[in-house]
């Protein structure tokens, strides 16, 4: 099955997975109503900074239903994240076969290979381990 993974950036720019070819990517699905999501998002921010030199890209995909982009942007600022927050359409959730459960995170290595997928909040150590796996997969 071929999927077109294009998302709208909160500032209006279209973003696709293919824009980050050669990078390890974390795709984190979250929502403003999700408390556990907001616990781990600052960790993604920290780890995104820590592994920036190794080419890590963190992307947050908002799953709120019908919320204005300004509100989503304000909420992400309040959580303390500055990585791109994207507004995917319904097709993305279908393409990723998302569960009815947030947060959900994909760790993607070389050529879009998903090296790990998690549902629910994980510890910062586990998140870092998954990030390291994705970075290592890009280097292979």
């Amino acid at each position: 099955m071929l999927l077109t993974l294009r998302w709208s950036h909160i500032k209006g720019k279209k973003v696709s997975l293919s824009d980050f070819k050669g990078h390890a990517i974390v795709v984190n699905f979250w929502a403003t109503y999700c408390g556990p999501c907001k616990v781990e998002m600052p960790w993604f921010q920290d780890l995104g900074t820590k592994y920036h030199e190794k080419g890590l890209v963190i992307l947050g995909l908002d799953q709120d239903d019908g919320m204005a982009t300004e509100e989503v942007a304000a909420a992400s600022r309040r959580v303390g994240v500055s990585y791109p927050i994207l507004m995917p359409d319904d097709k993305v959730a279908k393409d990723y076969q998302l569960s009815d459960y947030l947060p959900e995170t994909y760790y993607i290595g070389e050529n879009g290979r998903v090296v790990d997928q998690t549902i629910g909040t994980h510890s910062k150590d586990e998140i870092e381990a998954d990030i390291q796996k994705a970075i290592a997969a890009v280097g292979q």
Partner: peptide, 27 residues
């Protein structure tokens, strides 16, 4: 000690997103 909170999703093999033609394939 490493502690686990969330859930790991396992596929039959690794889930692959192919970046061909700005698209991807999910097993």
């Amino acid at each position: 000690m490493k502690q686990s909170f969330g859930l790991k999703v396992q596929g039959s093999g690794l889930l692959v997103l192919l970046l061909a033609l700005a698209g991807a394939s999910v097993s």
